[in-house]
Amino acid sequence: MMLSMRLFTLLFVLLQSMLITAAYADEPAQVVKVADPYLEMHTGPNVSYPIFYVIERDETITVIKRRTSWYLIQNYRGKEGWVHNSQLAKTLTLDNEKIEIKEFTRENYLEHDWEVSMIGGQFGGLPMMTLSGSYAFTQNISTELSFAQIIGDFSSRMLLGINLTQQPFPDWKVSPYFSLGTGIIKTSVKSTLSPLEDQTDILANVSIGAKMYLTRRFFIRADLKKHIIFQSRNKNEEITSWQVGFAFFF
């Protein structure tokens, strides 16, 4: 119960901080002028939410915030509603110039520094899940810290690893990468009847993989890894793993 109490306190603090940032993260509002014959305001950020108000041409509106491809806007009467990206793209600045809506594109993807990925697959035939974060020093070289869990019928394993990745052709649509890494692997035996004991070993791995940009902040990745576990009791264990998953970049 102590654990859940601690978890609850942590969550409470986390939510508090989130609420504070949500309340104070106001960016300066932007004012634009409607250029289309009319602008449809939805009650929510989805095409399925009803249109409840229509703004005429030449009226000025204030853009408040964005969620996915929808913008929350306010007109001079104080009416607030959600407008789709494609309609807002047709509005003008007060100087009658076209506005530019910046989307996360492949260009941002090619320049990104940080990425977080969630991938899953098999580790020597057993289900494996990995959460990892990586930082790119250049477009070609990055380092990645990963945490993986491998679930077996008789034992489960946790793997904490660090690796160095080389991506020789970052601008290719499907861009391959090569990686060298090391880490520790902890094996916990499930059944008390098993003669084996819990143990922690050092491992090294080499991998080949590929990344492909999907949309906005997203890309998919897949990799094939060869692990060598330096075991203390007898000879080294060699295991192959494959994983596929999605990742997003910052």
């Binding site: 932007q30 915030k65 506005i99």
Partner: peptide, 9 residues
Amino acid sequence: VELSKIDTE
């Protein structure tokens, strides 16, 4: 007008 500056949630 810099819509990229707008708070994205």
